[in-house]
Amino acid sequence: MSRITFALSDLRAKGRKALIPFITAGDPHPSHTVGLMHALVAGGADIIELGVPFSDPMADGPVIQLACERALIHNTSLWNCCAMVAEFRKTDSRTPVVLMGYLNPIETRGLDAFCTLAKDSGVDGVLIVDLAVEEAPEFAPKVRSFGLDLIFLLAPTSSDARIEAIAREASGYLYYVSLKGVTGSASLDIGSVTAKLGQIRRHTALPVAVGFGIRDAESAAKVGAVADGVVVGSALVSQIEKHQSTPEVLPDLLKSQLAQMRAALDALN
C-alpha cells in the first residue's frame, strides 16, 4: 500500500478529512522549502503537494505564477525538488509528498530518469496539470511501475465518460478542481461541488480531494463536509509572497494558518 493510500485510509477509518497544503518549491528561496514543509506538517498537513516551478504555468493564477517566477530566479529545477523531498524524508518518513507541475520539465529529463529519482527521493505521487488521461497511455503504467501514485484532476466540465476513464488510470486520490478557472480564483459554489462529487463517486471509490477557491478555515470546513480532503495553495503562497523579504517568519505563519483549517476540519466530526 502506498504512503498516500495508507494515510488516506487511516483518515477515513478515523472519520477525518485530509488537509493537503500546496507550496511551490524554491519559493521564496530553495533553502526555505524543506523547513516550510515541516512547518506544514506541524500545522496539521496530511499530504504535501510540492509545486515544481515552470516558466509557463498556464493553469495557474497570478499568485502561483509569481511563486514560479521567484523560484526560477534561483533556478529551482525538477532535480532540486527531488533533493528537497529527500532532505525532508530524513526527519519525516510518514507524510506523503506529491510533486505537482507541468509535463515539459519531466519530459526534458526523461520519464525513466525522473521516476527513478523521484522514488529514491521519497516522492509518493505525481500530479501533472497538463497531462490529460488520453495522452497518458504509456506514461501512467510507467509511473505506476515505479510505485508512484499518479494523481489526476477532475473538473466541473468532466463528463461521465471522462470521469470513468480518469478514475481507471488514477491512484492515491483524485483532485477535483472546484470551479472553472485558474488557481487562486475567488468563488466557491459548494452546492455544485457537492453535486459533482456525487457524480464522481458513482464512478470510483478513490478518495476525492477538492481544491481551487479554498482560502480559510470557513471554506475548508464547507468543502471538508462533502469531500475526503481539501487542498489549499494560493492562500498559503500569498503569505509567502507577502513575507518574502522576512522569510524567517514564514514557518510559524504557515503553521498557524494551516492549524486553523485543521481545527475547522476536525470540528466536523
Binding site: M58, A155, V177
Partner: peptide
C-alpha cells in the same frame, strides 16, 4: 500535437 491542457478544457 495532441491535447495537453488542464482537465477543465478537455470537454470544451
Amino acid at each position: 500535437g495532441g491535447r495537453f491542457v488542464a482537465e477543465t478544457l478537455m470537454e470544451p
